[in-house]
Write a protein that binds this DNA or RNA. Structure first.
Ligand SMILES: [Mn+2]
Ligand SMILES: [Mn+2]
Ligand SMILES: [Zn+2]
Ligand SMILES: [Zn+2]
Lengths: 127, 127
DNA sequence: TTGTTATTGCAACATTGTTGCATTTTATTT
DNA sequence: AAATAAAATGCAACAATGTTGCAATAACAA
C-alpha cells in the first residue's frame, strides 16, 4: 500500500470541504483557494481524499460533480448510501445522512455503490 | 406552444434508443448513426426527445449522461422515479422500472426530480 | 542533513456540451 | 403544385471539465 503525504494543498482543500455545510464542486474549491495551487492539483488532491475516504464524491442530478465531507460518526461501519438533496434555486447540494432509502433489486444484481439524488426546493429557499 | 417536426435524424435516434435494452450515451448514438447527422444535431434531438417525454435522461454514477426510452405502460401517470443499474464490468446502464425506492425526507424539502443509480455487477456479468 | 519518492506545476490534450448564424427541410397554406 | 413560415440542421467557434506526461519540488523517514 502506497503512503500519502500531508501537503498544504491537501490540508486546505480538506478544511474547505469539512467546514462547508454543502457539497462543493471543483470550481468552487478553486475559487476559494485563491491560487494556492494549480487546478490539476485540486483534481489530484480530491481523488486522494476520496481514495482515503476522507471525502465523498457526489454526482448531482445535472451530472455535475461535488465533494462533501465524510461524517464518520459511527465507529466501524460507514456508508455513503444516503440521499443527497439538490436545490434548484440556490444550487446547493446537501447530504441527508439520516435518510437511507430502501429498495429491493431483483436477485443476481450485485450492489457495490449507490448514488441517490433528489432535486427540488430546499427549506432555506421555500419561504 | 411551439410545434415539432419529424426529421430523419429524430426518427433514427428515437429508433436506436427504443430498440436498445440499455441506456445509450451521446457518443454511442453517434457511432451507431454512422454520420447521418452532425453531433450538435444529436444533442438537439436528444433535448427535444426528453422535452417531448419520449425519452428520459439518466445521469450515471460516474457523471456520464445516457438516454433510455420511456415505457409508457400505465395510461396517465408516468414517472421516472425508478432505479437505474450501472454495471461496472460491461458498463451498461439499465432501467429497473419496477424498482421504486421508498424514502422519507425531512418536511419542508419539496421534491421535484429524482435520480437513483446503483452500480455493481449485472446478472449478465455475474457468472 | 540526505535520499527517496510522493506531490506539484505546466503545457498539451481529450471529452462533452453550448451558441450564433446562414442554409436546408418540413409541413401548412394558397 | 408552388409558395410560405419557421423548425431543424451544419458548421465553426467556444466553454467547461477532466486527464496525461514529465521535469521540478517538497515531504518525511532514516
Ligand atoms: Mn462518507
Ligand atoms: Mn419515462
Ligand atoms: Zn436552496
Ligand atoms: Zn454487466
Amino acid at each position: 500500500m502506497k503512503q500519502t503525504r500531508n501537503t498544504t494543498a491537501k490540508t486546505e482543500i480538506l478544511k474547505l470541504i469539512s467546514q462547508s455545510t454543502v457539497a462543493l464542486s471543483h470550481s468552487e474549491i478553486q475559487n476559494n483557494l485563491d491560487g494556492l495551487c494549480d487546478r490539476v492539483t485540486i483534481y489530484r488532491v480530491l481523488d486522494r481524499l476520496v481514495e482515503e475516504d476522507l471525502v465523498h464524491k457526489v454526482v448531482n442530478i445535472d451530472g455535475g460533480v461535488k465533494y462533501a465531507s465524510c461524517n464518520h460518526k459511527e465507529a466501524v461501519h460507514h456508508s455513503h448510501n444516503h440521499i443527497h438533496f439538490s436545490c434548484e434555486e440556490c444550487h446547493t447540494v446537501t447530504c441527508l445522512e439520516d435518510v437511507k432509502p430502501s429498495f429491493e433489486l431483483p436477485k443476481r444484481y450485485q450492489v457495490k455503490e449507490v448514488n441517490f439524488t433528489v432535486s427540488g426546493i430546499c427549506p432555506e429557499c421555500s419561504s
